[in-house]
Design a protein around this nucleic acid. Sequence first.
DNA 1: CTGGGCGCACTACGGCTGTAGTACAGTCGA
DNA 2: TCGACTGTACTACAGCCGTAGTGCGCCCAG
Lengths: 206, 206
Amino acid sequence: MSAPAAPPGPSSGASRAGLVADAALALLAERGMRGLTHRAVDERAGLPQGSTSNVARTRQALLELTVRRLADREARVLALHEMPDPRAGLDALVGALALATHRALTRHRTLTLARYELALEATRRPELRAHFDAAGARFREQLGALVTAMGSADPARHVLSLVAWADGLMFSCVAGSFHAEVPSLQEVRSGLRELLDGMLGGPPGR
Amino acid sequence: MSAPAAPPGPSSGASRAGLVADAALALLAERGMRGLTHRAVDERAGLPQGSTSNVARTRQALLELTVRRLADREARVLALHEMPDPRAGLDALVGALALATHRALTRHRTLTLARYELALEATRRPELRAHFDAAGARFREQLGALVTAMGSADPARHVLSLVAWADGLMFSCVAGSFHAEVPSLQEVRSGLRELLDGMLGGPPGR
DNA sequence: CTGGGCGCACTACGGCTGTAGTACAGTCGA
DNA sequence: TCGACTGTACTACAGCCGTAGTGCGCCCAG
């Protein structure tokens, strides 16, 4: 009779590791890096004590698991809406990027916050850095191809500028120096449009 | 003989609280929020055990002390180079902002990293939020006046855009999704110039 | 049918953390 | 001169954290 309440077997819909990683992401957004502990993840995921330790024994392993989960989730989110066409119009690019940015601030706010927590931690953990690099490289490649097709004179720098603008906007709104209201999709689009106009239409200053 | 090695008296050049807060900032940059403990600050500052507890008994008090110190330091740094004239040329604005951004990535990298750690923590600590808000408000006011003088049609949004761009660039280079090399001052200036061009010169899309 | 392998639940423990408490030295005002 | 006070050094303690270890029950190969 020591059987637990719900031992549904090996495949209970979501894998054990997935449940743990999702709880870890939620915890990062809610309580930050100091709130992410093995026991807290157990509790948050509704799993018995020790489950997280069994999935990821060390803290480093838990962080790597969480980063992988984050990358998977964001890749799936971006893949749905991003990169409409190889060389669709500028409007399509602006719309897609603005939508992704806006969604990150509203629907996926938890993931966005967790990502900043993990990115900061990755500063001090080279193994985490590798995961981030791999995840972001493909996205930046696609973006680079797009801005090149739009006539960018310096694609690498322009990709950096675009990513920085979007990342900074998200950070400012989510954890920023001023409790900025989340801008409307229209406002995001306007800002992005201005940035791209400056990049692509600035002939004199090179 | 229990006298410590260096009890130089009440005024030993830098105040006790200042030493503690500076050590806390360094520790945040080096080890993150989890590495910031009373005992670690004692050790980092070269002060006897318990000193940090005496200056800031609770953790919350330590964080507030550290945020105040950060705001003071950044205000002093910005005040030296920023905001050259009420309505100097666009080049002056670009140069000043680019220089400040570039310096934050090189000379004041530690402060920059600590700021992101604290900003994330402030998400969950309203008292810290207040300090950040106060510190940033004046800077944004000045910046708003400048872009207005330059002919901005939507100063509030443009200030947000500028701050987001600079913040995102710093974050990307310091803790970013890809270990970006710190861009040269010239590159920072080019990106900033493009952003401002797009803001101020975009007549068709409003 | 059965034996091995594997994931899971649970316990154990050394170390560290935040915070409170106490005693002492130097300073200043009366 | 002396008494109170402030800041400092140090100790105490309860709680939590990361990690290792152990035994049980389920599933599948043979």
